[in-house]
């Protein structure tokens, strides 16, 4: 990596392959760590009689592997979504939840709990389904309100996000105060970040949709570079800004909604990972997006491993760990790289 030099396809390919290798190593290492330390050899060694259960194999395949895959796809989705929202809103403080996705998902989840629904859709509970619908519906509402203030009005979009967020938060508080305490407790716990998922079908569908979203975002990454200079500038450089903004918003909102419906609200990943990657690799979205996806996956796998080990056999909500670990980590990066290239690579 040489700061300031233009990116080449060869350099990008080398960076992505290196990042994926590191991710696989972290995934493998974290799958062996937990309240019960298991060894790779033990996982795949015969358990004795045919009907006997190999506990290491059971833990690895049915508990840790799905959890690690889930953390990977949620971390990748949130990090990429953060990159996109920061670019489109030209706001370093933007994160995947800035346009009201969190309150929309929360409202959806609370409504599902209060309604007492008891069915599953493709293996998902009503809470997850309603959270997904609430998240996407809120982004659409914010986008619709924001666009009425002007096609390229970023401030209008942000204000619409703040107002809708505040309104939905108030509705959540109201519903929380009238709902039964047990229902509310389970919903709040779910919203704090929940990395348990045993259904591989759900995981593969989630991973497929997140991967498709990341590929789609990569495809428009040169246009995102231009949009970082504002819609008018990008348009005068030949970028169809309306189309690019709509595609980017739709994909970022969709992958965030997928992440929220799978794991609740995991904070900090979408804010800290894009900045960390930007400080080290620069702001070019052709590199920033794929590297942030891998870095987000690594970050959340590591954070979730801490969440399930530090107070074992109990578990911490992963959002607590992402904030506690991510904050100082980000500060170290900030101090180290600000000395070299200035804040945000200036």
């Amino acid at each position: 990596m040489s700061a300031g030099e233009p990116l080449t396809a060869k350099k990008l390919a080398a960076t992505i392959v290196s990042a994926i290798v590191i991710m696989l190593i972290v995934m493998f290492a974290c799958s062996l760590v937990g309240p019960r330390v298991i060894s790779f050899k033990a996982v795949f060694s015969p358990a004795g009689p045919v009907e006997a259960i190999n506990p290491d194999y059971e833990i690895f395949v049915h508990v840790r592997l799905p959890r690690i895959i889930l953390a990977c796809l949620v971390g990748a989705a949130l990090a990429c979504s953060g990159v996109v929202f920061q670019a489109l809103l030209r706001n370093p403080l933007a994160d995947p939840y800035i346009l009201g996705i969190s309150s929309g998902a929360g409202l959806g989840a609370i409504v599902a709990v209060i309604s007492g629904l008891n069915w599953t859709l493709w293996g998902r509970s009503p809470i997850a389904v309603f959270a997904f619908v609430g998240a996407l519906g809120t982004v659409w509402l914010v986008w619709f309100i924001g666009r009425t203030t002007g096609r390229s009005n970023v401030t209008g979009l942000l204000l619409a996000g703040v107002v809708v967020n505040a309104f939905f938060s108030a509705v959540i508080m109201f519903l929380t105060s009238v709902a039964k305490s047990q229902d509310v407790h389970s919903t709040i716990f779910w919203l704090m970040g929940n990395m348990t998922e045993e259904d591989f079908f759900v995981l593969w569908v989630g991973a497929g949709s997140v991967l498709a979203g990341i590929v789609g975002l990569f495809y428009i990454s040169p246009q995102l570079n231009a949009l970082s200079f504002g819609a008018d500038d990008a348009r005068s450089m030949g970028v169809n800004t309306a189309r690019t903004q709509m595609i980017a918003f739709a994909i970022a909102a969709a992958i965030t909604a997928v992440a929220v419906s799978l794991s609740g609200l995991v904070g900090f990943v979408g804010l800290v990972v894009p900045h960390g990657v930007r400080l080290v690799f620069g702001p070019d979205h052709r590199q920033l997006l794929p590297v942030s996806a891998v870095a987000g996956a690594i970050f959340l796998v590591a954070a979730d491993t801490l969440a399930r080990t530090v107070v074992a056999p109990a578990q911490l909500p992963v959002g607590v760990v992402t904030a506690i670990v991510g904050g100082p980590f980000f500060l170290i990066l900030l101090v180290k790289y600000t000395r070299r290239v200035g804040w945000l690579g200036k």
Partner: peptide
């Protein structure tokens, strides 16, 4: 006069002018 939010370098910024001409993989 405009100060970009993110830290693009001079050459990265000037290369953006060629965005409509980039190849399918997004490179100049």
């Amino acid at each position: 006069e405009f100060v970009p939010v993110f830290g693009f370098s001079v050459i990265e910024t000037v290369l953006m002018a060629r965005t409509p001409y980039f190849g399918r993989m997004g490179f100049e």
